[in-house]
Each structure stands twice: as structure tokens, then as C-alpha cells.
């Protein structure tokens, strides 16, 4: 069981095919699998459906896969930061399925937990509910949402050991654990691979059972909205 690979390209070898469904971790540009996205661009794999909360920005993150027209459909909750996305969507080149953010996260988590569907009150009475099964429980109406069973998960973590146990850092955790859980194969990129036994077993965020391949690399970690305050002068 060798999970560590030398590069993102090598880690994706033999598992890509046109038309596949990929679940990607990240929120905005925070905690996104930058290196695996670059490797997908290089691979030329196309007609992808990508389940990811956002679609990067122009020229960075999943935005790179838009520029090369490798994405056919996005499943997202918010795509407002990307002019190329809007252009392709409005011209009909790109399909978009809006999901409320919590529904998207739960659809991934559910699939990873072997649950093909669940009922939620999120979106009842809105366009999101159209065409979906409605069911009342204890006097409240819920809609049926389906699990997202992805062909491939690409995620970013802070640290991993060689068995794939992952630790995330601060809000860069976000969609990464549920995205990792819902794929047939999960590839994780991390900032540091640490020796087995050096992670506290009680502090592991995602057990290695969900992670099949690991790479280590340098991340740009671009900041989308740099907001600061002034130090008060005495």
C-alpha cells in the first residue's frame, strides 16, 4: 500500500477519463487543490462535471480548467468571482447546477457515508425545490436531495502521514473532508508529509481510509480579499 506519489501528474495516472465527475475541496481560493488542478489542465481530460462550492477566479484554481474548456458542468453554490465563468455560462457553453452550500456539502458527505439521498428543508418553496420529491415530517415539508458519488476527489490538506491520515489548517478545511469522502478514488495534496506516528491519533481530521493517493508540494495560497485593521497607537 504505497500512497505517496512523486508528483500530481503521477498521482492522477490511470484514473482520468473524459466526462468524469470530480469533487473538489476548497472555499473560494482557501484550501483548494492547486497542484492537482494544474495537473488536470496538463492532462487535457475534458467534458468534466465538477462539484465544488466555487469555481476559482479568472486564471487561478478551477478558473484554469474553465479557460481550457475542460469543464462541461459545475455543481456549485456561488460563482460570482469569475468573469470567464459568466461568459461561458451565458453563451451556453457551460452548464451550471446551483446547490445551496449546506446541501452541496451534505450531498458529498452523504455519498461518502453510503447514503444515496436525504431530506432537507433548505430550499423548500424556492426554485431549488422544483422537480424534487417533497415529504412532510412532523408537520414540516422537506425535499429529497441526492448524494454526489464522484469518480474522483481532489483535496488539499495541511499534513498527511504515509497512510493518508489528514490534518487540515484553520478554515482551509471547509469542503475538503466531505469532498474526499464522496469519491471512488481520492487524491490529496498536502504541504507536508510527516513520519508515521508523528500525528496525534486523536487530532486526525480525516482518517486515511478515505485517501488513496498523496502528493506533497508548494502552494501559492492566493488571498481573495485582503482585509486588515490598523494597530491602535497608544
Amino acid at each position: 500500500m504505497k500512497k505517496i506519489h512523486a508528483s500530481a501528474e503521477e498521482a492522477l495516472e490511470g484514473i482520468l477519463h473524459d466526462g468524469m465527475l470530480i469533487a473538489a475541496g476548497g472555499f473560494g481560493l482557501c484550501g483548494i487543490p492547486e497542484l492537482l488542478i494544474d495537473a488536470l489542465v496538463k492532462s487535457g481530460v475534458k467534458d468534466l462535471t465538477v462539484a465544488s462550492n466555487n469555481c476559482g477566479v479568472d486564471g487561478f484554481g478551477l478558473g484554469k480548467l474553465l479557460e481550457t474548456r475542460q469543464i462541461r458542468k459545475m455543481m456549485s453554490s456561488y460563482v460570482g468571482e469569475n468573469a470567464e465563468f459568466m461568459r461561458q455560462y451565458l453563451s451556453g457553453e457551460l452548464e451550471l447546477e446551483f446547490n445551496p452550500q449546506g446541501t452541496l456539502a451534505e450531498r458529498m458527505r452523504a455519498a461518502g457515508a453510503g447514503i444515496p439521498g436525504f431530506y432537507t428543508k433548505t430550499g423548500v418553496g424556492t426554485v431549488i425545490a422544483e422537480g424534487k420529491e417533497h415529504k412532510d415530517f412532523d408537520g414540516e415539508t422537506y425535499i429529497l436531495e441526492r448524494g454526489i458519488f464522484a469518480d474522483l476527489s481532489i483535496v488539499k490538506a495541511w499534513k498527511a502521514d504515509d497512510t493518508g491520515n489528514l490534518v487540515f489548517r484553520k478554515t482551509a478545511r471547509n469542503f475538503n473532508p466531505p469532498a474526499a469522502m464522496c469519491g471512488k478514488i481520492c487524491v490529496a495534496e498536502v504541504e507536508e508529509i510527516v513520519p508515521r506516528g508523528s500525528l496525534d491519533p486523536d487530532m486526525i481530521h480525516l482518517p486515511g481510509i478515505y485517501v488513496h493517493r498523496i502528493i506533497q508540494g508548494q502552494h501559492e495560497k492566493r488571498i481573495e480579499q485582503r482585509t486588515t485593521r490598523k494597530k491602535e497607537t497608544a
Binding site: 472555499f27 473560494g28 481560493l29 482557501c30 484550501g31 484553520k170 478554515t171 488571498i223 486588515t228 485593521r229
Partner: peptide, 22 residues
């Protein structure tokens, strides 16, 4: 609150994607 200048952490943002602190 927002971090002091120079102390922004790309791994620590709010839902508006702004840098914040813990």
C-alpha cells in the same frame, strides 16, 4: 476581527472570503 497588516493568513478567511483572525 480583521488581522493587523502583515498578519493575514490565507488559511483563515470568513464566508465573504475576507482575511480574519481567531
Amino acid at each position: 476581527p480583521f488581522p493587523f497588516e502583515g498578519e493575514e493568513d490565507p488559511d483563515l478567511i470568513n464566508a465573504g472570503k475576507q482575511t480574519i483572525t481567531e
